[in-house]
Design a protein around this nucleic acid. Sequence first.
DNA 1: AATGAATGAGTCTTCATTCAT
DNA 2: GATGAATGAAGACTCATTCAT
Lengths: 209, 209, 209, 209
Amino acid sequence: MSVMTGGNRVSGGERGSGRRAELLSIAAEMFAVRGVAATTVREIADEAGILSGSLYHHFESKEAMVDEILRGYLSAQLERFRRVVEAGYEPYTTVGELIHESFAALHRHRWAMAILHNEAGRLAEFDRFGYIESANREFERIWVRVLRQGQRNGVFRAGLSPRLAHRFIRDSVSASVRWYNPSGRMSVRGIAEQYTRIFRDGMVAPGGE
Amino acid sequence: MSVMTGGNRVSGGERGSGRRAELLSIAAEMFAVRGVAATTVREIADEAGILSGSLYHHFESKEAMVDEILRGYLSAQLERFRRVVEAGYEPYTTVGELIHESFAALHRHRWAMAILHNEAGRLAEFDRFGYIESANREFERIWVRVLRQGQRNGVFRAGLSPRLAHRFIRDSVSASVRWYNPSGRMSVRGIAEQYTRIFRDGMVAPGGE
Amino acid sequence: MSVMTGGNRVSGGERGSGRRAELLSIAAEMFAVRGVAATTVREIADEAGILSGSLYHHFESKEAMVDEILRGYLSAQLERFRRVVEAGYEPYTTVGELIHESFAALHRHRWAMAILHNEAGRLAEFDRFGYIESANREFERIWVRVLRQGQRNGVFRAGLSPRLAHRFIRDSVSASVRWYNPSGRMSVRGIAEQYTRIFRDGMVAPGGE
Amino acid sequence: MSVMTGGNRVSGGERGSGRRAELLSIAAEMFAVRGVAATTVREIADEAGILSGSLYHHFESKEAMVDEILRGYLSAQLERFRRVVEAGYEPYTTVGELIHESFAALHRHRWAMAILHNEAGRLAEFDRFGYIESANREFERIWVRVLRQGQRNGVFRAGLSPRLAHRFIRDSVSASVRWYNPSGRMSVRGIAEQYTRIFRDGMVAPGGE
DNA sequence: AATGAATGAGTCTTCATTCAT
DNA sequence: GATGAATGAAGACTCATTCAT
């Protein structure tokens, strides 16, 4: 068990608040597209059709909005990763599943992923966002365990650093949020498959080199 | 010929004034570490031991500083990529060389790389920074050409999208600027080798699966 | 007769609604402790367990709450002062009684006294609170009359300005609201006695100087 | 020795800055007259003939302005109190001198005194203003020592609490800042003398009661 | 080359108050 | 009597930039 288990509780407890979720969704997209700092509270409010001060009826601060957005994504995604691991597949399969789950988030939590990818470094310095680092460590633990197990089994090439390999795939996947176009011709599933093949099997054709 | 041929005042750095280069180097690190928007002109000046107003004797604007930093990196790096291609190696070798060149920039242009990785999206919207997109397209052209050639030769696995593969490796490499620690135990060369093996040969051991 | 005869909704507190008095009491303490301006309507409401908007079912405005609190204290206290005077004691005794009455208010109207001491200057500028000045003038009239009478009788030292003496004691007493601690070991009665002795008889011991 | 000894160093070290002092003086009067919270940064700037943002070229924050104003007064006044004590007069005389020094500050530090009298309670809660409490404790120590010594000598009446007596005179003096009018007919010296007589000798005429 | 003072537009945030439900 | 959403005006503070000296 670890940090992000409670997950996504909305201050004041989840109460009704279609409005709250609506505002959050507007904000998430803007934060992702323009950047958190570059998105003004007024712009969010404008987009929502209210005055900027009114946002503070729903959220304590701009920071609190970011917080809520990120917590939601991280806790849900950790949950999914854990479930994959608990399913007990072979490492070879697990790696594929993890990559698929990562890309699946591109649908469900697109903006949160983008925000995280773009601003994690800056945010992580604030105590408030300490959970980001914790979550990242947990993700790493999961990946490294699987890769290492695969190496022990002889399925994965020895001599490669599992931590480095994890970073390799993690960075690729998370950066994809910048260019992925949901209405483009490449489906998330398609991208995930290609990435899995490259990562797991390499560019080189069997007997190719 | 292409975009980034002119400029390059930084690394080339004629234009008298070691002072200028010094200021630019201070700014580059700060832009990279804190973000361009989050770095104030005053902070740069403080770090340089002058008053913020005095910076305007050297540069037209904050934007101009960013511009100068990025141009320097992009033109130099494009130059290196072109040289690799012109050397006329086999695609298998060329891929390794490109990855090595990419990581080598981690030494020479660390801050510029970081700035570009972090803010390219935002900056590219301004006309002034149109050359960023141009340079990126040129990088892509080079990569895609090599990968496609390798596929035709049968060295690289068919059925993989070269553009996607390019993004895969590009994003991984460029994100590494965020965690790479020049004084850590992993050398740039070591990382480049591991990344090359994963990308080219995959995680799976020969006969592994 | 003078100013503060009407009003007094608070202590008298007909007007149905224990709720009203309860809210007023909550507000009074907060106004006294944090300052009127620094106490937000929302904080009062929070403390009362309702939403800020709901306060407006009971009071017209925040100002109206302050008004009601102060009127209650001033009219009651003026009444008591008048009664002391009407009792027709010697000036020497009357002074003691007035000081005692002043300190007695520390029990009954602690928060109102504090508010008045802290904010009278600011409030008095508003027409609405004109009665504060009127009440203060009435208090002064009473004090000055007694002191002057004592000087004529030869009981009180000549050559002292009654108005100045009044300010002296008034300011001391009213400032005591800031440090008086109802659960401390010094009783209100004890403080009043000491103050009376200092004011009436001075620090110097008989034959001391 | 105690807290407020360094005294009044202007951030950046006292450098020139007639402007700084000028702005501070404008602010001090406004803070005193309208209250710190009720005085807006813009009003101060307007009065100074600059834009509100420009104030931040000179001071870090509104709070910093208050801080500088109060430190200046407290350190100077403590110094004067210490000098009175070190002069080694009889307690009877010392009391008179302390009262005179207190009123003398009404000329030199009128606004600081007013701010302190009005807002000390609120300010003291902030760490930044911890020195206010320290200074107040030091003032009290000085007063209590003198009064107690006088009681031991038999000059001052026994049975009176020195701490209470200190509060009595302190509160009177400091509240006088609210009604003292420099252009009125009562001189500071005159008020000080009357207060000294009341406090030391009492209202009652010798053989009066 | 640099200082020091100032600008002006903009940022997040606060808060008394209103009002339909 | 109360809720919950919103208003609108204002407040402290930031910052790239300008410019006379």
